[in-house]
C-alpha cells in the first residue's frame, strides 16, 4: 500500500493531470466527496488531500509515503526525514524580499513581516543582517504600508499585488515550484514501488 499526500487548491489542479499521465486517476466522485482518504484507480494506492503546509508533516511521520508540496512549504518545514526527488515544475513563483524602496532595508534591526518565518530568518542571517520577524497569515503587503515592518518576505508571481500596494520586489531568495517528496524510511522499505512512480511522473513532465 502506498499513500500519496497532495496539497489542496491551486497545486492540486496542476498535480492531478501529472498523476493521470503517470497512470494514477482519482474519480470526480471521490474528489467531490467529503472523504479525506480517497480511492484511486489502483487498489494499492490511496490519496489524501490536505493543506499544503501539512504535507511535509504527514510525509515525515510516515502517514503518507509520497507528498507533493511547494518548495516554500518545504523550506519552512526544514524537510527533516524527507527526500526531495523531483521538481514538478508547476506552481512556479519566487520567494522575495519586497519593500517600498531599497532604502528601507538599511536598518540596524530590520523588521520583516512574513508567513515564511524560518526562510526569512535564515536568509537575513546568511547576509549578516539582524532582523525581527513578525509572523502574519495574510495580506503581507499591508505591513510596510502601515508601518508594521520595514519589508516583507513573500511569494511573488506576477508582482501585480506588490505594485498595487506601492511595493517593489528587491532580493530574490529562492525559486519556488512544487516538489515530490518521499519519506526516507518508505524510500528504503518500498524502494522499487516508489521509484517506479517517481520515474513514471518524471517521464511525463
Amino acid at each position: 500500500m502506498l499513500t500519496i499526500a497532495l496539497s489542496k487548491g491551486r497545486i492540486l489542479n496542476q498535480t492531478l493531470p501529472l498523476l493521470k499521465k503517470a497512470g494514477l486517476e482519482i474519480a470526480n466522485e471521490e474528489l467531490n466527496s467529503r472523504k479525506l482518504i480517497l480511492d484511486t484507480n489502483l487498489d494499492d494506492v490511496k490519496v489524501i488531500i490536505i493543506r499544503a503546509t501539512d504535507v511535509p508533516v504527514f510525509v515525515q511521520h510516515g502517514a503518507a509515503d509520497i507528498g507533493i508540496a511547494g518548495k516554500d512549504v518545504l523550506l519552512e518545514h526544514g524537510a527533516n526525514g524527507l527526500f526531495e526527488l523531483l521538481d514538478l515544475g508547476i506552481a512556479k513563483c519566487k520567494l522575495m524580499v519586497a519593500a517600498t524602496s531599497d532604502k528601507q532595508l538599511e536598518q540596524n534591526i530590520l523588521k520583516v513581516a512574513t508567513k515564511y518565518v524560518n526562510s526569512a530568518r535564515n536568509y537575513f542571517e546568511s547576509k549578516g543582517q539582524s532582523c525581527e520577524v513578525i509572523k502574519l497569515y495574510g495580506a503581507m503587503e499591508l505591513a510596510p504600508v502601515v508601518g508594521l515592518s520595514h519589508c516583507i518576505v513573500d511569494l511573488v508571481d506576477t508582482g501585480n499585488t506588490l505594485k498595487a500596494n506601492g511595493l517593489i520586489p528587491l532580493d530574490h531568495i529562492e525559486n519556488i515550484s512544487s516538489r515530490l517528496v518521499v519519506n526516507s524510511a518508505s524510500f528504503k522499505t518500498k524502494n522499487l514501488q516508489i521509484k517506479n512512480w517517481v520515474e513514471a511522473i518524471e517521464d511525463n513532465l
Binding site: 524537510a79 524527507l82 527526500f83 526531495e84 526527488l85 521538481d87
Partner: peptide
Amino acid sequence: TRRSVPDLSV
C-alpha cells in the same frame, strides 16, 4: 542529506 535532486542540479 535531504536527497534533494532539484537542489543538487541548482
